[in-house]
Simulated assay, not measured.
Amino acid sequence: MNRFDRVTAILIHLQAKRKVSGGSLAEQFGVSLRTIYRDLRTLEEAGVPLLGEPGIGYSLAEGYRLPPVMFSREEATALLTAGKLAAHLTDAPTAELAAAAMIKVRAVLRRPDRDHLDHLDPHIQVLGLRDQASRPPAYQQLVAAIAMHRVVRLGYQTAENEAPTTRDIEPISLYLSRQWHVVAYCRLRQTIRNFRLDRIRELTLQAEEFVVRPALLRQHWAAEANRRQRERVVLRFQPAALLPALMQLLHDTKHQYGWAHEQRLPDGQLEMTLFIGELPYLATWLLPFAGALTIVEPAALAAPLRALAQRAYDVFCPPEQ
């Protein structure tokens, strides 16, 4: 990066954050602290109103704004991809906001870059089922609740398919695994809980604000790390015994079940190593491959597979009357 680009990037960083330390800028751009100080003086000489606080960092005077910044073609493409992910993986209000943001991005692009985005747009797709219309706009409302420290009232459907329960929660954090989850303090259970957004049937932001307890989130992740100890699993598959569709399913879904690596053996078998927290959870994935599967380790994995197979047999092969 040449000096002009670096000075411009420093100015963008200053506008994007409340405070930026010289050390963090030096690390970001791979230059010395002395070089950063020289770049900051260049900005001051150009009329940029910089404020410095010893031991804290630098900021721009309140009210100072840059004119619209040009995006590179690669940055615009990354934002296009992010918008498509937001449209499919969050909720309808967030999808609308992402689309509005992309219109603004396109507005400041050079014409060749706009044409480039228009050409790429239909070639970048996020596939998967969406049922946003049948769900409340949970994601965007929960983002607002976390930012404003507002209590949320949920109508929540548990995994056991019981009647939905109504509970007040204090939302702390959102994360995406296979589904979106909100980590929150549940006033009904008087403890921190994890709620799947696709099981939320109703959601209302309450007027009440809650007191933020940062230690709760740290305790939650520490407890999750201790709970989710991973067990090594080694499996062997016989590709010749699997239908092509099942072989495709195996490779499409293996990363969801702790896949680590795999290798072809001399006899043609595919040996796969995974690290998983719960063997019964893994067994539900493996059952369709049972006719072409050998468990190398752990032997305990056979028990939940047998139980699932027996249950399927009892349901679909009842004794003749």
Rank of each mutant, 00 (worst) to 15 (best):
R6I: 09
A9R: 14
L11I: 04
Q15F: 03
A16Y: 01
K17L: 09
R18C: 03
K19F: 08
E27F: 03
F29G: 04
L33P: 01
L43V: 12
E44A: 15
G47Y: 04
V48T: 08
V48Q: 04
G52C: 13
Y58A: 01
L60N: 02
A61W: 01
M70N: 08
S72T: 15
R73I: 07
T77A: 13
T77F: 10
G83D: 01
G83N: 04
K84A: 03
L89D: 06
P93Y: 02
A95H: 03
E96P: 05
L97G: 03
L97Q: 15
L97M: 14
M102N: 06
K104H: 14
V105F: 05
R111S: 13
H116A: 14
L120Q: 07
D121S: 08
H123T: 12
I124M: 08
V126G: 09
Q132K: 06
R135V: 00
R135G: 00
V143K: 10
A144F: 09
A145F: 02
Q157Y: 00
T158K: 14
A159G: 11
E160H: 13
T165V: 15
D168N: 14
P171N: 02
P171G: 01
Y175F: 15
R178L: 10
Q179L: 09
V183M: 04
T191Q: 15
N194V: 01
R196N: 02
R199W: 00
L203V: 02
T204Q: 13
T204C: 07
T204K: 11
L205S: 05
Q206F: 01
F210C: 06
A215Y: 08
A215K: 10
L217A: 05
R218F: 13
Q219L: 12
Q219N: 15
W221D: 09
A223M: 11
N226T: 15
R227L: 15
Q229R: 14
V233R: 06
R236D: 06
F237V: 06
P239D: 07
P239K: 10
A240F: 07
A240T: 13
L242M: 15
L243I: 02
K254D: 12
G258E: 04
L265G: 03
P266H: 03
P266Q: 07
P266S: 04
G268P: 01
E271W: 07
F275Q: 15
L282C: 09
A292Y: 11
T294V: 13
T294W: 12
V296P: 05
A299F: 09
P304I: 09
P304M: 11
Q310C: 05
Q310G: 05
Q310M: 10
A312W: 10
Y313C: 13
F316A: 06
C317V: 08
